[in-house]
């Protein structure tokens, strides 16, 4: 044994080694956190610098201009993305919450495990595959449409909403369910009147994060909604433009103005995603605080 002669509280070599290991681990994780933040800062700043020239009100209020001209915008893409995401959310929110409620509140343990496995697999499916699936189901024969794009996005959102919702259902205390059931409520009533109202903050958070995730999706829209739409359209029966696809199309263009516009659009998209992610965190902490107050 080491450190026999040391005072009984001084620890000895083994403790010193452990303390060094602990300090090393702390340093490494600090470094990793720093790298993550640094990457984000570099991405945001460089995109901003490259797109700054095209960042103006026109970007939001005008549609693309012909080759070589300047002063165009991506109004049609902003409107299209907003509509696509809204439609996708209106499909994925109820579907995701229902799946979570079924798995957590009603399904036998084995079935619930299977549902969870399926959600995990679905969450891991490459988004281009989702795009191709919707293409073969809806687009082939009848053509691209906003609905097809929204459906593809919603397929990506469902597992995110469902898994997030299930996590909050799991922290709703069992004693609340018991209180409701002991008053003579059915399980369905209990879910509707007690469980979901208690979990609503977490469900909203999960949904906002899913919106942030799909707002920038490109692959699922490639075959399902429009890549070339340059005019404002709000009819989901027809193809809708999107910011992500505009960035893709602009950056493929030989026009340097288009390149700048692509960077500016990317910056707008990035700011939007960051803002709603932070908004989601705020909702989450408000919901927690509110429940304790």
């Amino acid at each position: 044994m080491t450190g026999r002669e040391a005072s009984p509280l001084s620890g000895g070599a083994r403790l010193r080694r452990r303390r060094a290991a602990s300090a090393g681990a702390e340093l490494l994780s600090l470094l990793a956190a720093f790298v993550a933040v640094a990457v984000l800062v570099v991405v945001v700043v460089s995109i901003f610098l490259k797109g700054a020239g095209a960042l103006s009100v026109h970007l939001f209020t005008r549609t693309p201009v012909p080759f070589g001209e300047t002063g165009g915008g991506i109004e049609q893409a902003l409107i299209g993305t907003a509509e696509l995401v809204a439609l996708a959310t209106s499909i994925a929110l109820p579907a995701g919450v229902l799946v979570a409620v079924y798995a957590h509140e009603f399904a036998p343990a084995g079935v619930a495990r299977l549902v969870r496995l399926c959600l995990n697999v679905l969450a891991g499916v490459p988004t281009i595959v989702v795009g191709i699936l919707v293409f073969t189901l809806m687009v082939k024969g009848s053509g691209q449409s906003g609905w097809a794009g929204a459906l593809a996005l919603s397929i990506i959102m469902v597992p995110l909403v469902a898994r997030g919702s299930e996590e909050v259902l799991a922290v709703v205390p069992a004693t609340l369910r018991e209180a409701s059931l002991a008053l003579g409520a059915t399980r369905a009533r209990t879910v509707l009147r007690v469980v979901l109202p208690t979990a609503v903050g977490g469900i909203v958070t999960a949904t906002i994060l899913a919106v942030a995730r799909v707002a920038g999706e490109t692959a699922p829209l490639l075959f399902t909604s429009s890549i070339a739409a340059t005019t404002v359209n709000t009819d989901p029966q027809r193809p809708l433009a999107s910011v992500a696809l505009s960035i893709f199309a602009d950056s493929e263009s030989p026009d340097p103005h288009a390149h700048q516009e692509a960077w500016a659009a990317a910056f707008v998209l990035l700011v939007f995603v960051l803002a709603i992610s932070i908004g989601a965190r705020l909702v989450a902490s408000r919901a927690r605080g509110g429940r304790l107050r």
């Binding site: 205390p173 004693t175 609340l176 018991e178 209180a179 409701s180 059931l181 002991a182 008053l183 003579g184 409520a185 059915t186 007690v194 109202p197 208690t198 429940r291």
Partner: peptide, 19 residues
């Protein structure tokens, strides 16, 4: 449901709804 309506229950830990 009817049984539980006629026979009330109070639990070990207070469990009011967050309402």
């Amino acid at each position: 449901i009817e049984v539980r309506r006629r026979i009330g229950m109070v639990f070990q830990r207070p469990n009011p709804f967050p309402k």
